[in-house]
């Protein structure tokens, strides 16, 4: 192993150790761990969006809708029909994927603009649809959703959720990474770079776009289902167009087409308002807007490009 390889291993080990030790450092400040948990949930959903936009070249302006579908499906199944929690999460993921199919099928055969508008329409009407349904608690939202339970172990404390989410996050990231390195993943990237070339190589462009879109919707559904059992409260307005734009912003700021971008983006998005302080919350919106513009113009790979530059500078 070269010396730079050893060094990289040391850095990665240090990061892993930091991730595992962090909750113990903030043991007395469970609110900070709570924020980190939220950031991880967002990072999961954003990873789906990153797969879609960064690797698939497709845009979704209504990704929060898939989170809402996943969350509500899982929560209603557990609360009203007393379904096993694990199966409910699976159903939430499947429900989100199904909606992805309904929206993706008509719009993906056309240019990217149509997908943008169709997902935007979904994103802005999902809150209204949920509000009109009785089973979802309508305008009051769903309250007292049971806490996530694994076997006999209830995830009530923020610290236990933290470790659980770290595990889920790692699994999701590995699945996405392996998908991207598989034959299908290469096909997806080929479609992004040139549809014409891809189809000349025998890639079924429409099918791969649809697969990517459904995959991204499923990941958002998973994030939504976990969100429901973590926050224990769902309200339709939390999943409106503005939250979809937030998810999109996280993936852009973190760095599209990079595997760690979603984590950086979600951390930045959740932590900046905390750091700035409650009274100045709209200043963070200004900073987010500027960050997006700055990312697109000067740092196409967002914060993760910044990290890579620091790495090369320090020769890690």
């Amino acid at each position: 192993m070269t010396s730079s390889g050893t060094r990289r291993l040391a850095v990665n080990g240090a990061i892993a150790a930091l991730v595992l030790v962090l909750p113990l450092v903030f043991r007395t400040k469970s609110s900070i761990i709570g924020y980190l948990n939220i950031a991880m949930l967002y990072a999961i959903a954003t990873q789906g969006l990153n797969l879609l936009m960064g690797f698939g070249g497709l845009v979704s302006l209504g990704h929060a809708a898939f989170m809402a579908i996943g969350g509500y499906t899982a929560a209603v199944l557990v609360m009203t029909y007393h379904v096993n929690m694990f199966l409910a999460v699976v159903a939430g993921v499947a429900g989100a994927g199904l909606f992805g199919l309904v929206i993706g099928f008509p719009s993906l055969r056309l240019s990217g603009f149509y997908l943008a508008v169709a997902t935007m329409a979904l994103g802005s009407s999902i809150a209204d649809i949920i509000k009109r349904l009785a089973i979802t608690g309508g305008d009051y939202g769903l309250i007292n959703i049971p806490v996530l339970r694994l076997g006999g172990w209830e995830l009530t404390s923020e610290i236990s959720k933290y470790y659980f989410f770290v595990a889920i996050l790692v699994v999701v990231f590995l699945v996405v990474r392996n998908f991207l390195n598989s034959r299908s993943g290469r096909a997806v990237r080929a479609v992004r770079d040139s549809e014409m070339t891809a189809s000349a190589m025998g890639v079924n462009v429409a099918a791969y776009k649809l697969i990517t879109f459904i995959f991204a919707a499923c990941i958002a559904g998973l994030s939504g289902a976990l969100y429901a059992f973590t926050i224990s409260y769902l309200h339709p307005m939390n999943f409106g167009l503005s939250f979809s734009i937030s998810l999109l912003s996280m993936s852009i700021i973190g760095g599209l087409g990079t595997i760690i971008g979603p984590i950086l983006g979600a951390l930045f998005w959740v932590m900046l308002p905390v750091v700035i302080g409650g009274k100045m919350e709209f200043l963070s919106t200004v900073i987010f807007g500027l960050s997006i513009i700055g990312s697109v113009m000067f740092l196409p790979k967002g914060l993760s490009e910044l990290v890579t530059r620091i790495q090369t500078r320090l020769r890690l």
Binding site: V59, S284, T285, G289, I292, I293, S295
Partner: peptide
């Protein structure tokens, strides 16, 4: 300066601009 890039980048720029205006107005 970004015209040569994908239409996704251009859409993202306008989204950033929209967020900037919203944040400025609220702030």
């Amino acid at each position: 300066s970004v015209r040569s890039r994908s239409h996704l980048s251009l859409i993202m720029l306008t989204l950033g601009l929209s967020l900037l205006f919203q944040g400025l107005a609220a702030f």
